[in-house]
């Protein structure tokens, strides 16, 4: 189960399991998590449970709440998040909300009254999830950027960075090839036309062809040279 670790002056001051749909945090004694500090508002924030998510929301507190130094109003908690409120820190621990872990299988849930709130799961399978964006950016960053320089044709004298996952070259309805950017490099594949494009004078065939630094591509009216930055 997800929990919140209360930290004061760098030392652990308590543990709270998120065991209900709405957890209140504030200086007033009646709060589920009572933080006795003048920098904390009486009703400072709430954490709401929606499915697998725990959503932190600042209730317009006087001094605000910060996550990694940035002020936040509403935030879907991620494993390891530390939120500052006054002199206190709350650390969110939930291995199921770990961006490094795998996606879970799709599950059905009971949306009994179709209201948004704590939703019980119909299956007891453990959930674990990943943040797509982190996985993706690390893949993209891991190999050099490629570019083509036009020797002849529409792009003569120009340099085109191949930053997106794919780009086609050639003449639509005539001869077209696509250059794909995928780990671990760049590939050229035939798209349309009776004859395939040529790399260094050789037709590329129907299978993807790996591009090397300095390769000369001829497709449609274009003659292009491939480089890695």
């Amino acid at each position: 189960m997800a929990k919140l670790v209360v930290i004061l002056n760098g030392a652990m001051a308590g543990n709270h399991f998120i065991d209900k749909g709405r957890i209140t945090i504030g200086r007033r004694a009646g709060n589920d998590i009572h933080l006795d500090d003048p920098g904390v508002s009486k009703e400072h924030a709430v954490i709401q449970t929606v499915g697998n998510d725990h959503i932190f929301e600042d209730l317009g507190s006087t001094n605000g709440s910060t996550l990694n130094g940035s002020r936040i109003a509403k935030h879907i908690l991620q494993n390891g998040d530390v939120i500052d409120m006054g002199a206190y820190q709350l650390k969110y621990a939930n291995i199921k909300a770990n961006p490094e872990m795998d996606y879970d299988r799709t599950m059905m849930i009971h949306a009994v009254d179709r209201k948004i709130g704590a939703v019980p799961l119909s299956a007891g399978r453990d959930a674990s999830h990943a943040s797509v964006s982190t996985a993706r950016s690390s893949l993209r960053a891991s190999f050099p950027l490629g570019e083509v320089r036009g020797i002849k044709g529409e792009f003569a004298g120009q340099t085109i960075e191949l930053e997106r996952p794919l780009k086609t070259f050639g003449t639509a309805g005539g001869q077209v090839a696509v250059i794909m950017r995928r780990p671990p490099g760049y590939f050229i594949t035939h798209v349309e036309g009776n004859k395939a494009a040529r790399v260094n004078g050789q037709a590329i065939g129907s299978e993807p062809h790996t591009l090397q630094e300095g390769d000369v591509i001829e497709v449609g009216q274009e003659k292009l040279e491939f480089f890695l930055k």
């Binding site: 709401q48 929606v50 499915g51 697998n52 998510d53 959503i55 509403k74 935030h75 879907i76 991620q78 199921k96 909300a97 996606y103 879970d104 299988r105 799709t106 599950m107 059905m108 849930i109 949306a111 179709r114 948004i116 939703v119 799961l121 959930a127 999830h129 943040s131 797509v132 964006s133």
Partner: peptide, 18 residues
């Protein structure tokens, strides 16, 4: 409850209601 921009931070992407 969630901004569409924050949706990628959610852990509910695999929960279908129907």
């Amino acid at each position: 409850l969630i901004d569409s921009g924050d949706a990628k931070l959610s852990h509910n992407r695999n929960l279908v209601t129907r």
